[in-house]
């Protein structure tokens, strides 16, 4: 059972992702300004992407760098020489030498979804500003409780 200190030492990335996630979630719930909520939403989404990418990191297990002269855990692109003879017999490639490509693909999707959601949210924020003249949620609710001019 790893002690909390060991967790903090080895899995520092995962602890930081939880901290960032909570900063984003807290901002989304408690911030009154609409754009601040959106910044919190973006921090929230980026923290999840950090978690996914941290899954894919690979330090090559027992193969220390330089053990057989080739670097370890690098970008999942096959070098020219190795790639060529992988066509005929693919088992020559040792997956431990590369980072895991699957989380990278998933996170391309998540980044793009995050920007799309942010764009739609900013469009809605502009329309809310056009209607109520402010971005503060409590001022908008005050206008709603004693409606002077908005149509019902």
């Amino acid at each position: 059972m790893p002690t909390p200190f060991q967790i903090l030492l080895h899995n520092f990335n995962y602890v930081c992702y939880v901290v960032l996630l909570m900063i984003g979630l807290h901002a989304m719930i408690t911030k009154r300004n609409l754009i601040k909520k959106l910044i919190g939403m973006s921090v929230f989404s980026t923290a999840i992407i950090l978690f996914y990418v941290s899954i894919g990191v690979n330090n090559g297990g027992d193969m220390l760098a330089g053990h057989d002269g080739r670097p370890v855990g690098n970008i999942p692109v096959l070098e020219h020489g190795i790639g060529h003879d992988a066509i005929t017999h693919p088992e020559t490639i040792d997956p431990r030498r590369y980072a895991n490509p699957l989380p990278h693909v998933l996170m391309l999707t998540a980044i793009v979804v995050g920007v799309a959601t942010l764009g739609v949210a900013l469009a809605i924020t502009q329309r809310v500003f056009q209607d109520y003249g402010t971005l503060e949620e409590d001022e908008i609710l005050a206008q709603l409780n004693n409606p002077q001019e908005n149509d019902d």
Binding site: L38, I49, V53, N74, A99, M107, I111
Partner: peptide, 22 residues
């Protein structure tokens, strides 16, 4: 962390464009 594709996309899409939208 050797995730260069994701870093490239985040720099272009995440940082560049979404900051400009805001």
């Amino acid at each position: 962390m050797a995730a260069v594709d994701v870093a490239f996309t985040e720099a272009a899409v995440g940082a560049g464009v979404s900051t400009l939208f805001m």
